[in-house]
């Protein structure tokens, strides 16, 4: 298994707190400062409380695979031939309703990925970048 390397572009500061937390091996997601609703992907303006702001809060580090695909041919710009295969997954975190994280499943050690599989946060360092990857819970 490989891991793709492609740096977040961070054209704006909107997603910066996500990566700042990951770099500290933490996991934080944005919620409305007024009502606490999780807002993912982070919006420029809050649909629930336009006068509120995004508050990045720590979230549980366990969850369930909603779907996955094992990528044999990476389509990112540039040459990523040596970085496949990898398994992308959408993970639903425990107690964070309505949110799915795009991730890569690591440390599968031959276990075939499955929908419904329990996973836990296991960030992985690639070059100087930490990726928000997940591994099987047991």
């Amino acid at each position: 298994m490989g891991l793709p390397f492609f740096e977040p572009r961070l054209d704006t500061d909107l997603m910066r707190p996500y990566w700042d937390a990951i770099r500290n091996n933490d996991l934080k997601l944005p919620a409305c400062s007024v009502c606490g609703a999780w807002l993912w992907y982070p919006p420029e303006s809050l649909p629930c409380h336009p006068n509120g702001h995004l508050e990045w809060r720590p979230v549980p580090k366990t969850g369930t695979v909603y779907t996955f695909t094992t990528v044999e041919r990476c389509l990112l710009p540039g040459d990523h031939k040596d970085e496949t295969p990898y398994t992308n997954a959408l993970v639903e975190l425990d107690d964070v309703p309505g949110v799915r994280l795009v991730t890569i499943l690591v440390n599968l050690n031959g276990t075939p990925p499955k929908i419904g599989m329990r996973v836990r946060y296991a960030p992985t360092k690639v070059n100087d970048q930490t990726l928000p990857t997940f591994e099987p819970e047991t």
């Binding site: 793709p4 492609f6 740096e7 572009r9 997603m15 990476c74 990523h80 990726l131 928000p132």
Partner: peptide, 18 residues
């Protein structure tokens, strides 16, 4: 798309086939 550039592409989740 900034969301894709920051939340999906760094994980290799890119391109309509995926």
């Amino acid at each position: 798309d900034p969301h894709k550039a920051d939340l999906e592409m760094p994980l290799g989740f890119y391109g309509q086939p995926l």
